[in-house]
Design a binder for these strands. Structure first.
Lengths: 259, 259
DNA sequence: GTGGATTTGG
DNA sequence: CCAAATCCAC
Protein backbone atom coordinates (compact mmCIF):
# COMPACT_ATOMS: atom_id res chain seq x y z
CA UNK A 1 0.00 0.00 0.00
CA UNK A 2 1.35 3.40 -0.98
CA UNK A 3 -0.14 6.82 -0.25
CA UNK A 4 0.85 9.73 -2.45
CA UNK A 5 -0.34 13.21 -1.49
CA UNK A 6 -0.14 16.72 -2.90
CA UNK A 7 -0.65 20.18 -1.41
CA UNK A 8 -0.21 23.74 -2.58
CA UNK A 9 0.72 25.16 0.82
CA UNK A 10 1.12 28.84 -0.14
CA UNK A 11 4.34 29.37 1.86
CA UNK A 12 5.93 26.47 3.70
CA UNK A 13 7.39 28.89 6.24
CA UNK A 14 3.89 29.92 7.30
CA UNK A 15 2.29 26.49 6.88
CA UNK A 16 4.82 23.92 8.13
CA UNK A 17 2.74 23.26 11.25
CA UNK A 18 -0.25 22.29 9.14
CA UNK A 19 1.96 20.10 6.96
CA UNK A 20 3.25 18.35 10.08
CA UNK A 21 -0.35 17.69 11.15
CA UNK A 22 -1.20 16.38 7.69
CA UNK A 23 1.78 14.00 7.73
CA UNK A 24 0.70 12.70 11.14
CA UNK A 25 -2.91 12.27 10.08
CA UNK A 26 -2.57 10.73 6.62
CA UNK A 27 0.91 9.21 6.95
CA UNK A 28 1.65 9.52 3.22
CA UNK A 29 4.66 7.84 1.69
CA UNK A 30 5.15 10.78 -0.61
CA UNK A 31 3.93 14.38 -0.32
CA UNK A 32 4.23 16.77 -3.25
CA UNK A 33 4.30 20.41 -2.15
CA UNK A 34 3.72 23.47 -4.30
CA UNK A 35 4.19 27.18 -3.67
CA UNK A 36 6.70 26.78 -0.88
CA UNK A 37 7.71 30.40 -1.60
CA UNK A 38 11.26 30.17 -0.32
CA UNK A 39 14.77 29.24 -1.29
CA UNK A 40 16.08 25.75 -0.53
CA UNK A 41 18.11 27.18 2.36
CA UNK A 42 15.00 28.76 3.90
CA UNK A 43 12.92 25.55 3.94
CA UNK A 44 11.97 25.13 7.60
CA UNK A 45 13.46 22.29 9.58
CA UNK A 46 10.19 20.67 10.74
CA UNK A 47 10.54 17.24 9.17
CA UNK A 48 11.12 14.18 11.35
CA UNK A 49 14.50 13.20 9.95
CA UNK A 50 14.14 9.63 11.19
CA UNK A 51 11.07 9.19 9.00
CA UNK A 52 11.27 11.46 5.98
CA UNK A 53 13.64 12.90 3.42
CA UNK A 54 12.94 15.98 1.35
CA UNK A 55 14.04 17.22 -2.04
CA UNK A 56 13.51 20.90 -2.73
CA UNK A 57 13.33 23.02 -5.85
CA UNK A 58 12.92 26.44 -4.33
CA UNK A 59 13.55 30.02 -5.29
CA UNK A 60 13.25 33.41 -3.64
CA UNK A 61 9.73 34.53 -2.62
CA UNK A 62 7.70 32.96 -5.43
CA UNK A 63 6.64 29.50 -6.62
CA UNK A 64 8.87 26.67 -5.42
CA UNK A 65 8.11 22.95 -5.10
CA UNK A 66 9.31 20.20 -2.79
CA UNK A 67 8.79 16.49 -2.25
CA UNK A 68 8.74 14.89 1.18
CA UNK A 69 9.17 11.11 1.05
CA UNK A 70 9.66 8.26 3.48
CA UNK A 71 13.28 7.36 4.12
CA UNK A 72 12.86 3.77 2.97
CA UNK A 73 11.77 4.89 -0.50
CA UNK A 74 14.48 4.88 -3.09
CA UNK A 75 14.04 7.85 -5.43
CA UNK A 76 16.03 9.14 -8.34
CA UNK A 77 15.84 12.84 -9.10
CA UNK A 78 15.58 13.31 -12.85
CA UNK A 79 16.93 16.46 -14.42
CA UNK A 80 14.39 18.25 -16.59
CA UNK A 81 15.95 19.70 -19.69
CA UNK A 82 13.51 22.42 -20.68
CA UNK A 83 14.32 26.12 -20.61
CA UNK A 84 10.70 26.99 -19.99
CA UNK A 85 10.05 24.46 -17.24
CA UNK A 86 13.29 25.32 -15.48
CA UNK A 87 13.03 29.10 -15.79
CA UNK A 88 10.87 29.18 -12.65
CA UNK A 89 10.86 26.66 -9.78
CA UNK A 90 7.59 24.94 -10.69
CA UNK A 91 8.40 21.30 -11.48
CA UNK A 92 10.16 18.27 -10.06
CA UNK A 93 10.50 14.85 -11.65
CA UNK A 94 11.43 11.79 -9.62
CA UNK A 95 11.55 8.10 -10.39
CA UNK A 96 10.48 5.53 -7.79
CA UNK A 97 12.38 2.32 -8.13
CA UNK A 98 10.08 0.31 -5.85
CA UNK A 99 6.91 1.22 -7.76
CA UNK A 100 8.57 1.60 -11.15
CA UNK A 101 6.82 4.95 -11.39
CA UNK A 102 7.77 8.46 -12.50
CA UNK A 103 6.21 11.27 -10.48
CA UNK A 104 5.93 14.84 -11.71
CA UNK A 105 5.24 17.51 -9.10
CA UNK A 106 3.78 20.55 -10.87
CA UNK A 107 2.84 24.11 -10.01
CA UNK A 108 1.38 25.46 -13.23
CA UNK A 109 1.70 29.21 -13.97
CA UNK A 110 -1.41 31.16 -13.07
CA UNK A 111 -1.47 33.21 -16.27
CA UNK A 112 -3.42 36.18 -14.95
CA UNK A 113 -4.06 38.96 -15.67
CA UNK A 114 -5.55 37.60 -18.88
CA UNK A 115 -4.89 40.85 -20.75
CA UNK A 116 -1.13 40.51 -20.20
CA UNK A 117 -0.04 38.56 -23.28
CA UNK A 118 3.28 37.57 -21.68
CA UNK A 119 1.55 35.84 -18.79
CA UNK A 120 -0.92 33.74 -20.77
CA UNK A 121 1.67 32.94 -23.44
CA UNK A 122 4.06 31.68 -20.80
CA UNK A 123 1.33 29.49 -19.34
CA UNK A 124 0.49 27.98 -22.75
CA UNK A 125 4.16 27.45 -23.58
CA UNK A 126 4.69 25.89 -20.16
CA UNK A 127 1.83 23.45 -20.80
CA UNK A 128 3.40 22.59 -24.17
CA UNK A 129 6.68 21.76 -22.48
CA UNK A 130 4.92 19.70 -19.81
CA UNK A 131 3.16 17.86 -22.64
CA UNK A 132 6.45 17.13 -24.40
CA UNK A 133 8.11 15.92 -21.23
CA UNK A 134 5.16 13.66 -20.35
CA UNK A 135 4.94 12.33 -23.89
CA UNK A 136 8.59 11.34 -23.79
CA UNK A 137 8.06 9.36 -20.59
CA UNK A 138 4.88 7.68 -21.83
CA UNK A 139 6.33 6.81 -25.26
CA UNK A 140 9.24 5.12 -23.50
CA UNK A 141 6.69 2.75 -21.88
CA UNK A 142 7.27 4.09 -18.40
CA UNK A 143 4.52 4.79 -15.89
CA UNK A 144 3.77 8.35 -14.86
CA UNK A 145 1.84 10.18 -12.16
CA UNK A 146 1.48 13.95 -12.44
CA UNK A 147 0.25 15.65 -9.29
CA UNK A 148 -0.20 19.24 -8.23
CA UNK A 149 -1.84 22.54 -8.98
CA UNK A 150 -2.79 22.76 -12.67
CA UNK A 151 -4.35 26.22 -12.44
CA UNK A 152 -7.09 25.21 -14.84
CA UNK A 153 -10.83 24.78 -14.50
CA UNK A 154 -11.18 21.97 -17.00
CA UNK A 155 -14.82 21.11 -16.45
CA UNK A 156 -17.67 23.61 -16.28
CA UNK A 157 -18.78 21.93 -13.05
CA UNK A 158 -15.38 22.59 -11.43
CA UNK A 159 -16.70 26.03 -10.43
CA UNK A 160 -20.01 27.12 -8.93
CA UNK A 161 -20.55 29.55 -11.78
CA UNK A 162 -18.19 28.83 -14.64
CA UNK A 163 -19.14 31.97 -16.57
CA UNK A 164 -17.24 34.02 -13.97
CA UNK A 165 -14.05 32.23 -15.02
CA UNK A 166 -14.35 32.25 -18.80
CA UNK A 167 -12.40 35.47 -19.01
CA UNK A 168 -9.79 34.32 -16.50
CA UNK A 169 -6.56 32.47 -17.19
CA UNK A 170 -7.96 29.51 -15.21
CA UNK A 171 -11.09 29.15 -17.32
CA UNK A 172 -9.55 30.25 -20.61
CA UNK A 173 -10.43 27.77 -23.40
CA UNK A 174 -6.90 27.58 -24.77
CA UNK A 175 -5.60 26.62 -21.34
CA UNK A 176 -8.33 24.04 -20.82
CA UNK A 177 -7.47 22.56 -24.21
CA UNK A 178 -3.80 22.28 -23.24
CA UNK A 179 -4.76 20.42 -20.07
CA UNK A 180 -7.03 18.11 -22.04
CA UNK A 181 -4.29 17.44 -24.57
CA UNK A 182 -2.06 16.43 -21.69
CA UNK A 183 -4.71 13.95 -20.50
CA UNK A 184 -5.17 12.66 -24.04
CA UNK A 185 -1.60 11.36 -23.90
CA UNK A 186 -3.26 8.54 -22.00
CA UNK A 187 -3.37 9.98 -18.50
CA UNK A 188 -6.49 9.58 -16.40
CA UNK A 189 -7.60 12.43 -14.19
CA UNK A 190 -8.41 10.60 -10.96
CA UNK A 191 -10.87 13.21 -9.75
CA UNK A 192 -13.07 12.19 -12.69
CA UNK A 193 -13.07 8.58 -11.53
CA UNK A 194 -13.69 9.04 -7.83
CA UNK A 195 -16.05 12.03 -7.78
CA UNK A 196 -18.99 13.20 -9.76
CA UNK A 197 -18.86 16.59 -11.48
CA UNK A 198 -19.12 19.46 -9.01
CA UNK A 199 -18.74 17.21 -5.99
CA UNK A 200 -15.39 18.55 -4.81
CA UNK A 201 -13.29 21.67 -4.90
CA UNK A 202 -9.61 22.07 -4.06
CA UNK A 203 -9.17 25.86 -3.86
CA UNK A 204 -11.14 28.70 -2.27
CA UNK A 205 -9.82 32.23 -2.79
CA UNK A 206 -8.93 34.17 0.36
CA UNK A 207 -10.90 37.08 -1.05
CA UNK A 208 -14.66 37.65 -1.08
CA UNK A 209 -15.25 35.09 1.72
CA UNK A 210 -15.07 32.32 -0.87
CA UNK A 211 -14.64 29.61 1.77
CA UNK A 212 -17.59 30.75 3.87
CA UNK A 213 -19.78 30.81 0.74
CA UNK A 214 -18.25 27.56 -0.58
CA UNK A 215 -17.31 29.39 -3.76
CA UNK A 216 -14.45 27.06 -4.63
CA UNK A 217 -12.89 25.60 -7.76
CA UNK A 218 -11.23 22.28 -8.56
CA UNK A 219 -7.76 22.87 -9.96
CA UNK A 220 -5.57 20.36 -8.09
CA UNK A 221 -5.38 16.90 -9.64
CA UNK A 222 -3.60 13.61 -10.06
CA UNK A 223 -3.15 12.35 -13.63
CA UNK A 224 -2.03 8.73 -13.94
CA UNK A 225 -0.95 6.42 -16.75
CA UNK A 226 -3.08 3.34 -17.64
CA UNK A 227 -1.01 0.54 -16.16
CA UNK A 228 -0.99 2.16 -12.72
CA UNK A 229 -4.61 3.27 -12.87
CA UNK A 230 -5.76 -0.21 -11.91
CA UNK A 231 -3.75 0.07 -8.68
CA UNK A 232 -5.49 3.22 -7.46
CA UNK A 233 -7.91 2.22 -4.72
CA UNK A 234 -8.78 5.55 -3.17
CA UNK A 235 -8.68 9.31 -3.69
CA UNK A 236 -9.45 11.85 -0.96
CA UNK A 237 -9.52 15.63 -0.83
CA UNK A 238 -9.02 16.88 2.75
CA UNK A 239 -11.49 19.74 2.72
CA UNK A 240 -11.17 20.31 6.47
CA UNK A 241 -7.74 21.85 6.04
CA UNK A 242 -9.31 24.93 4.45
CA UNK A 243 -11.07 25.70 7.73
CA UNK A 244 -7.96 25.81 9.94
CA UNK A 245 -6.40 28.90 11.45
CA UNK A 246 -4.28 30.62 8.80
CA UNK A 247 -5.09 28.02 6.14
CA UNK A 248 -3.62 27.63 2.70
CA UNK A 249 -6.09 28.59 0.00
CA UNK A 250 -5.65 25.04 -1.39
CA UNK A 251 -6.41 21.76 0.40
CA UNK A 252 -4.26 18.64 0.46
CA UNK A 253 -5.39 15.54 -1.41
CA UNK A 254 -4.08 12.00 -1.70
CA UNK A 255 -4.42 8.68 -3.47
CA UNK A 256 -3.86 5.12 -2.28
CA UNK A 257 -2.21 2.48 -4.43
CA UNK A 258 -2.47 -1.24 -3.68
CA UNK A 259 1.24 -1.63 -4.41
CA UNK B 1 -0.58 53.82 48.15
CA UNK B 2 -0.47 54.59 44.47
CA UNK B 3 1.59 52.92 41.77
CA UNK B 4 2.32 54.83 38.59
CA UNK B 5 4.07 53.02 35.74
CA UNK B 6 5.38 53.85 32.29
CA UNK B 7 6.35 51.76 29.27
CA UNK B 8 7.39 52.43 25.72
CA UNK B 9 5.81 49.31 24.20
CA UNK B 10 6.87 49.76 20.56
CA UNK B 11 3.46 48.80 19.11
CA UNK B 12 0.56 48.03 21.42
CA UNK B 13 -0.91 45.69 18.79
CA UNK B 14 2.16 43.46 19.01
CA UNK B 15 2.72 43.91 22.75
CA UNK B 16 -0.71 43.93 24.40
CA UNK B 17 -0.12 40.47 25.85
CA UNK B 18 3.00 41.68 27.65
CA UNK B 19 1.12 44.74 28.88
CA UNK B 20 -1.60 42.49 30.27
CA UNK B 21 1.05 40.47 32.11
CA UNK B 22 2.60 43.66 33.46
CA UNK B 23 -0.76 44.90 34.73
CA UNK B 24 -1.35 41.58 36.50
CA UNK B 25 2.11 41.52 38.01
CA UNK B 26 2.54 45.11 39.21
CA UNK B 27 -1.12 46.12 39.51
CA UNK B 28 -0.41 49.79 38.81
CA UNK B 29 -3.07 52.43 39.34
CA UNK B 30 -1.85 54.26 36.28
CA UNK B 31 0.18 53.06 33.30
CA UNK B 32 1.61 55.52 30.79
CA UNK B 33 2.24 53.94 27.37
CA UNK B 34 4.39 55.31 24.57
CA UNK B 35 4.84 54.27 20.94
CA UNK B 36 1.52 52.49 20.65
CA UNK B 37 1.93 52.91 16.86
CA UNK B 38 -1.74 52.85 15.99
CA UNK B 39 -4.83 54.99 15.65
CA UNK B 40 -7.27 55.22 18.57
CA UNK B 41 -9.65 52.92 16.69
CA UNK B 42 -6.94 50.27 16.30
CA UNK B 43 -6.03 50.10 20.02
CA UNK B 44 -6.56 46.44 20.90
CA UNK B 45 -9.39 45.49 23.20
CA UNK B 46 -7.35 43.63 25.86
CA UNK B 47 -8.13 45.75 28.91
CA UNK B 48 -10.28 44.37 31.71
CA UNK B 49 -13.13 46.87 31.46
CA UNK B 50 -14.26 46.14 35.00
CA UNK B 51 -10.91 47.33 36.33
CA UNK B 52 -9.38 49.89 33.95
CA UNK B 53 -10.20 52.78 31.71
CA UNK B 54 -7.99 54.03 28.92
CA UNK B 55 -7.43 57.36 27.22
CA UNK B 56 -5.64 57.25 23.89
CA UNK B 57 -3.78 59.81 21.79
CA UNK B 58 -2.94 57.71 18.76
CA UNK B 59 -2.13 58.24 15.12
CA UNK B 60 -1.45 56.08 12.10
CA UNK B 61 1.66 53.84 12.24
CA UNK B 62 3.97 56.10 14.24
CA UNK B 63 4.31 57.44 17.79
CA UNK B 64 1.10 57.44 19.80
CA UNK B 65 0.59 57.49 23.59
CA UNK B 66 -2.07 56.13 25.91
CA UNK B 67 -2.88 56.04 29.61
CA UNK B 68 -4.48 53.05 31.30
CA UNK B 69 -5.90 53.90 34.73
CA UNK B 70 -8.02 52.22 37.38
CA UNK B 71 -11.74 52.87 37.09
CA UNK B 72 -12.02 54.39 40.53
CA UNK B 73 -9.52 57.13 39.67
CA UNK B 74 -11.06 60.40 38.65
CA UNK B 75 -8.99 61.98 35.90
CA UNK B 76 -9.40 65.13 33.89
CA UNK B 77 -7.87 65.22 30.40
CA UNK B 78 -6.22 68.58 29.87
CA UNK B 79 -5.98 69.98 26.39
CA UNK B 80 -2.44 70.93 25.41
CA UNK B 81 -2.34 74.10 23.39
CA UNK B 82 0.96 73.86 21.57
CA UNK B 83 1.29 73.47 17.82
CA UNK B 84 4.57 71.63 18.21
CA UNK B 85 3.47 69.25 20.95
CA UNK B 86 0.23 68.46 19.17
CA UNK B 87 1.68 68.08 15.66
CA UNK B 88 2.54 64.45 16.45
CA UNK B 89 0.83 62.15 18.97
CA UNK B 90 3.56 62.27 21.62
CA UNK B 91 2.04 63.83 24.75
CA UNK B 92 -0.90 63.50 27.10
CA UNK B 93 -1.66 65.63 30.14
CA UNK B 94 -4.08 64.49 32.81
CA UNK B 95 -5.00 65.83 36.24
CA UNK B 96 -5.67 63.46 39.13
CA UNK B 97 -8.19 64.86 41.52
CA UNK B 98 -7.50 62.33 44.27
CA UNK B 99 -3.76 63.00 44.38
CA UNK B 100 -3.96 66.64 43.31
CA UNK B 101 -1.35 65.80 40.70
CA UNK B 102 -0.79 66.58 37.04
CA UNK B 103 0.72 63.77 34.97
CA UNK B 104 2.44 64.29 31.64
CA UNK B 105 2.93 61.20 29.48
CA UNK B 106 5.73 61.94 27.01
CA UNK B 107 7.33 60.29 24.01
CA UNK B 108 10.12 62.64 23.02
CA UNK B 109 11.17 62.86 19.35
CA UNK B 110 14.20 60.71 18.56
CA UNK B 111 15.96 63.40 16.50
CA UNK B 112 18.10 61.09 14.38
CA UNK B 113 19.70 61.13 11.94
CA UNK B 114 21.74 63.90 13.54
CA UNK B 115 22.76 65.31 10.16
CA UNK B 116 19.11 66.02 9.29
CA UNK B 117 18.64 69.57 10.65
CA UNK B 118 14.83 69.26 10.57
CA UNK B 119 14.88 66.27 12.90
CA UNK B 120 17.15 67.69 15.60
CA UNK B 121 15.53 71.12 15.37
CA UNK B 122 12.13 69.59 15.92
CA UNK B 123 13.43 67.73 18.96
CA UNK B 124 14.91 70.91 20.48
CA UNK B 125 11.76 72.90 19.73
CA UNK B 126 9.66 70.09 21.20
CA UNK B 127 11.73 70.20 24.42
CA UNK B 128 11.24 73.98 24.55
CA UNK B 129 7.49 73.52 24.34
CA UNK B 130 7.54 70.81 27.00
CA UNK B 131 9.55 73.20 29.15
CA UNK B 132 7.00 75.97 28.66
CA UNK B 133 4.08 73.71 29.44
CA UNK B 134 5.76 72.32 32.57
CA UNK B 135 6.77 75.78 33.73
CA UNK B 136 3.19 76.99 33.49
CA UNK B 137 2.00 74.13 35.68
CA UNK B 138 4.77 74.57 38.23
CA UNK B 139 4.41 78.37 38.40
CA UNK B 140 0.71 77.89 39.14
CA UNK B 141 1.77 75.95 42.30
CA UNK B 142 0.44 72.65 41.00
CA UNK B 143 2.23 69.35 41.38
CA UNK B 144 3.58 67.59 38.32
CA UNK B 145 4.90 64.18 37.35
CA UNK B 146 6.41 63.73 33.90
CA UNK B 147 6.94 60.14 32.84
CA UNK B 148 8.00 58.45 29.67
CA UNK B 149 10.69 58.13 27.05
CA UNK B 150 12.86 61.25 26.96
CA UNK B 151 15.20 60.01 24.20
CA UNK B 152 18.17 61.58 25.94
CA UNK B 153 21.28 60.18 27.58
CA UNK B 154 21.64 62.85 30.24
CA UNK B 155 24.45 61.34 32.25
CA UNK B 156 27.65 59.90 30.83
CA UNK B 157 27.04 56.80 32.95
CA UNK B 158 23.65 56.24 31.31
CA UNK B 159 25.47 54.35 28.53
CA UNK B 160 28.25 51.75 28.64
CA UNK B 161 30.42 53.86 26.39
CA UNK B 162 29.07 57.39 26.15
CA UNK B 163 31.50 58.42 23.40
CA UNK B 164 29.51 56.24 20.99
CA UNK B 165 26.49 58.48 21.58
CA UNK B 166 28.07 61.94 21.46
CA UNK B 167 27.33 62.23 17.77
CA UNK B 168 23.80 60.87 18.14
CA UNK B 169 20.61 62.81 18.80
CA UNK B 170 20.32 60.98 22.15
CA UNK B 171 23.73 62.06 23.41
CA UNK B 172 23.80 65.45 21.71
CA UNK B 173 24.81 68.15 24.18
CA UNK B 174 22.09 70.60 23.15
CA UNK B 175 19.48 67.90 23.79
CA UNK B 176 21.00 66.98 27.16
CA UNK B 177 20.96 70.64 28.11
CA UNK B 178 17.26 70.91 27.21
CA UNK B 179 16.51 67.95 29.45
CA UNK B 180 18.53 69.45 32.27
CA UNK B 181 16.75 72.79 31.89
CA UNK B 182 13.48 70.92 32.25
CA UNK B 183 14.72 69.39 35.51
CA UNK B 184 15.96 72.77 36.70
CA UNK B 185 12.36 73.94 36.77
CA UNK B 186 12.36 72.08 40.07
CA UNK B 187 11.69 68.55 38.93
CA UNK B 188 13.62 65.67 40.44
CA UNK B 189 14.69 62.81 38.22
CA UNK B 190 13.78 59.81 40.36
CA UNK B 191 16.31 57.51 38.75
CA UNK B 192 18.99 59.74 40.31
CA UNK B 193 17.52 59.22 43.76
CA UNK B 194 16.95 55.49 43.71
CA UNK B 195 19.92 54.25 41.67
CA UNK B 196 23.56 55.03 41.43
CA UNK B 197 25.01 56.15 38.07
CA UNK B 198 25.25 53.31 35.59
CA UNK B 199 23.20 50.93 37.74
CA UNK B 200 20.20 50.66 35.44
CA UNK B 201 19.26 50.90 31.81
CA UNK B 202 15.80 51.17 30.28
CA UNK B 203 16.45 50.54 26.57
CA UNK B 204 18.49 48.00 24.61
CA UNK B 205 18.52 48.35 20.83
CA UNK B 206 17.20 45.39 18.84
CA UNK B 207 20.31 45.64 16.69
CA UNK B 208 23.81 44.38 17.38
CA UNK B 209 22.62 41.98 20.11
CA UNK B 210 22.56 44.90 22.55
CA UNK B 211 20.47 42.98 25.10
CA UNK B 212 22.72 39.92 25.06
CA UNK B 213 25.76 42.16 25.55
CA UNK B 214 23.92 44.39 28.09
CA UNK B 215 24.71 47.39 25.90
CA UNK B 216 21.77 49.45 27.13
CA UNK B 217 21.02 53.09 27.83
CA UNK B 218 18.87 54.87 30.38
CA UNK B 219 16.42 57.15 28.61
CA UNK B 220 13.10 56.48 30.38
CA UNK B 221 12.44 58.51 33.50
CA UNK B 222 10.03 59.98 35.99
CA UNK B 223 10.49 63.65 36.85
CA UNK B 224 8.54 64.88 39.89
CA UNK B 225 7.88 68.20 41.58
CA UNK B 226 9.19 68.85 45.14
CA UNK B 227 6.03 68.56 47.20
CA UNK B 228 5.29 65.08 45.82
CA UNK B 229 8.90 63.92 45.93
CA UNK B 230 8.57 63.22 49.66
CA UNK B 231 5.76 60.76 48.90
CA UNK B 232 7.80 58.59 46.55
CA UNK B 233 8.74 55.44 48.41
CA UNK B 234 9.96 53.19 45.65
CA UNK B 235 11.14 53.10 42.03
CA UNK B 236 11.62 49.93 40.02
CA UNK B 237 12.74 49.18 36.48
CA UNK B 238 11.43 45.78 35.31
CA UNK B 239 14.48 44.60 33.42
CA UNK B 240 13.07 41.08 32.95
CA UNK B 241 10.59 42.31 30.37
CA UNK B 242 13.46 42.84 27.90
CA UNK B 243 14.11 39.09 27.91
CA UNK B 244 10.61 37.98 26.90
CA UNK B 245 9.62 36.57 23.53
CA UNK B 246 9.12 39.44 21.09
CA UNK B 247 9.98 42.09 23.68
CA UNK B 248 9.75 45.83 23.40
CA UNK B 249 13.17 47.45 23.17
CA UNK B 250 12.22 49.42 26.31
CA UNK B 251 11.33 48.03 29.74
CA UNK B 252 8.47 49.12 32.00
CA UNK B 253 9.22 51.01 35.18
CA UNK B 254 7.11 52.24 38.07
CA UNK B 255 7.07 54.32 41.24
CA UNK B 256 5.13 53.94 44.47
CA UNK B 257 3.63 56.89 46.32
CA UNK B 258 2.51 56.69 49.95
CA UNK B 259 -0.66 58.55 49.06
C1' DG C 1 -7.04 38.37 1.99
C1' DT C 2 -2.79 36.53 2.32
C1' DG C 3 2.35 36.26 1.80
C1' DG C 4 6.70 38.29 0.34
C1' DA C 5 9.84 42.22 -0.84
C1' DT C 6 10.95 46.69 -0.19
C1' DT C 7 11.20 51.02 2.05
C1' DT C 8 11.07 54.09 6.02
C1' DG C 9 11.57 55.06 10.87
C1' DG C 10 13.59 53.93 15.10
C1' DC D 1 16.67 44.17 14.50
C1' DC D 2 11.80 45.24 14.58
C1' DA D 3 7.23 47.30 13.10
C1' DA D 4 4.39 49.51 9.74
C1' DA D 5 3.35 50.88 5.02
C1' DT D 6 3.29 50.15 0.23
C1' DC D 7 3.40 47.44 -3.61
C1' DC D 8 2.95 43.12 -6.09
C1' DA D 9 1.23 38.52 -7.19
C1' DC D 10 -2.39 35.36 -6.80
Amino acid sequence: MTIIASWNVNSIRVRYGHVENFLNKVDPDILLLQEIKCMNSEFPDFIDQSKYNVTINGQKAKYGVAIIYKKEIDIRIIQIKSQTLESQARVQLIYLKSLNLNILNVYTPNGNPINDPDKIQFKLKWYDELYNLSKKIILSKQDLLIGGDFNVIENIKDAINFQEWENDALGNLQVRTKFRELCFLGLTNLSRIFFKPGQIFSFWDYQRACWERNDGILIDHFLISPKKLQNVKRLEYETNFRGLEKPSDHIPFWLKLNI
